[in-house]
Design a protein around this nucleic acid. Structure first.
Length: 509
RNA sequence: GCGGGUGUAGCUCAGUGGUAGAGCGUCACGUUGCCAACGUGAAUGUCGUGAGUUCGAAUCUCAUCACCCGCUCCA
């Protein structure tokens, strides 16, 4: 399919029509950045998470040195002690007040803007400029000189300079913005922290303020010692978690891609610093291979190693695993595999225990003492679910059912359907026991209503890989047909062979 | 956050001031012989929401919400 917004609109319509994804609170006009999964979408996303948990935690890939390693899971609370977010850097670093200019459409950090004004004049105009920018300051000086009807620079004794943050907001209507010539274009400073705030307990004051977690990772770090002490794990090992996280995005967009409430599938893998590069490359490659194993074609999947200028301050290396969604010309991040060094354990060691090395471990063999390095493959469950939907969407106008969803069998919400060709001549009686047997093991549907073509078409839109049809021949020789979703081809198999057929075709679920 | 666009049935949309519509889908009954068949019938609408103008508003005005596009942002 062409990669464009028209394709995306078709996908969105199909998801609504067939019950994959609904807008949250739709009957009340919706709410931006929040989405619900319908019956098919819920099965799909559950399959995504189950596949991840099985392949990464219960049966992880073999390590780079050919040895197996341990993976264990945790399920942490969404609301944590606010000190967690101070230690992690989420509170301090990202609450900068910003001002917008209504005229120039520019946005400035309020603490990086100063104003020039005439000394002693409490009613005159003030001229804003970027504090560290001489050009901007001289521009403001010229405007002040013009305002005072004298030549620039204005004598220093007639000028007062002060930070924008020291100007009361009710006087902002006297300020000329850094890129304008008019007064009153700057908004009052506004906080842009992306964390959702709430209050714990009945009193809503500063001491009860808490945050909905903006990532699941910190719950893992906070429990690092608990897991070490209770689980007999030895480095190298990983702790995994699937759970909701919340970011109060300024501008949610692109369907479910940037939601304010979303689910993460995160691993924090702890290893010896000397081996951390090896493990980083191992997880990067393992995670790419995982997406490919679930049917994401490699030309839509683009790993992108971040440049040094792009890396967060805590990260030694990071690869974004990106996918080419129909809503964008550029690939978008599904997962980040980050080499975080010992940043997180050091930060929590220092904040919670008073010293950076509080979470150091001792290597049994070498007696070496070190704070483990962390490799973090952090995947978005909703993002991959959306990628799986986009990847599955096919349109072929030559088919009776032009739209069909080619989900990988492991991800398909419904694995099989059982249809009597027509609802008479004993066909339903043969079909029903087959259906009852299949549904013990696989999500399966039975349908005897309406024409066979319409039933196939419905299953095509749901992405069901196989349809078993009982026809007139079934009564005579005990065979039924299997219809393949992807090419609409059919073959006959003995009706007793249905379970074996599905086991062979679907493999490990 | 800024600018532009769109909002009418489950989906796609028509409806420019005077009775709320179509196609597809859904459901029921009949029929059925492998790809959204056919016949008959049925259900489904806060016309995104709230104000205003008007004798009368899906239609005009304002506000607001949601979505799409382009910027901005994205620890």
């Amino acid at each position: 399919m062409p990669n464009n917004s028209a394709t995306m609109e078709k996908i969105v319509a199909l998801c609504k029509r067939r019950g994959f994804i609904f807008q949250s609170s739709e009957i009340y006009g919706g709410i931006g950045g929040f989405w619900d999964y319908g019956p098919l979408g819920t099965e799909l996303k559950r399959n995504v998470k189950d596949a991840w948990w099985l392949d990464m935690v219960r049966n992880p890939p073999t390590g780079p040195d050919g040895r197996e390693f341990q993976m264990v899971g945790v399920d942490c609370s969404i609301i944590m002690n606010p000190k967690v977010w101070e230690a992690s850097g989420h509170v301090g670093g990202f609450s900068d007040p910003m001002v917008d200019c209504r005229l120039s459409k520019s946005r400035y950090r309020a603490d990086q803007i100063s104003v020039l004004a005439e000394a002693g004049n409490d009613d005159g105009q003030m001229f804003a400029f970027a504090s560290e920018d001489e050009e901007s300051e001289s521009r403001a000086m010229k405007l002040l000189a013009k305002y005072l009807k004298c030549s620039a620079p204005v004598p220093s004794e007639r000028v007062q300079t002060k930070p924008l943050m020291d100007v009361p907001t009710d006087q902002f209507n006297r300020i000329v913005g850094p890129d304008t010539k008019e007064v009153g274009t700057l908004t009052e400073p506004r906080e842009f922290n992306l964390m959702f705030e709430t209050f714990v307990g009945a009193l809503q004051d500063s001491t009860s303020k808490a945050y909905l977690r903006p990532e699941t990772a910190q719950g893992i770090f906070a429990n690092f010692k608990n897991v070490m002490d209770s689980s007999r794990v030895k480095i190298p090992f990983g702790i995994a978690q699937i759970g909701k996280a919340f970011r109060n995005e300024i501008n949610p967009r692109n369907y479910t891609f940037r939601s304010r409430e979303f689910e993460q599938m995160e691993i924090e893998f702890f290893c010896n610093p000397k081996e951390s590069r090896m493990w980083y490359e191992f997880w990067r490659d393992a995670r790419i291979a995982w997406y490919e194993s679930l049917g994401i074609k490699s030309d839509n999947l683009k790993p992108r190693e971040q440049g040094e200028d792009e890396l967060a301050h805590y990260s030694d290396a990071c690869t974004d695993i990106e996918y080419l969604f129909p809503f964008s010309e550029e690939t978008q991040e599904l997962e980040g595999v980050a080499h975080r060094g010992s940043f997180d354990l050091n930060a929590h060691g220092k904040a919670a225990k008073g010293k950076e090395e509080a979470f150091a471990v001792i290597d049994d063999a070498t007696k070496e003492r070190y704070v483990p390095h962390v490799i973090e493959p952090s995947a978005g469950a909703d993002r991959f679910t959306l990628a799986a939907i986009c990847e599955a969407y096919h349109y072929d106008e030559n088919r009776a059912s032009p739209e069909f969803m080619c989900f990988h069998p492991r991800l398909a919400p419904i694995k099989a359907a059982v249809f009597p060709l027509v609802a008479k001549d004993g066909m339903p009686e043969i079909a029903e026991p087959i259906y009852r047997e299949i549904k013990k093991h696989y999500p399966c549907q039975f349908d005897a209503k309406q024409s066979i073509g319409k039933r196939y078409a419905r299953m095509d839109e749901a992405g069901t890989p196989f349809c078993f049809t009982i026809d007139g021949q079934s009564k005579d020789d005990g065979t039924i047909t299997v219809r393949n979703r992807d090419d609409a081809s059919q073959q006959r198999i003995p009706k007793e062979g249905v379970g074996r057929f599905l086991a062979d075709q679907l493999g490990q679920l």
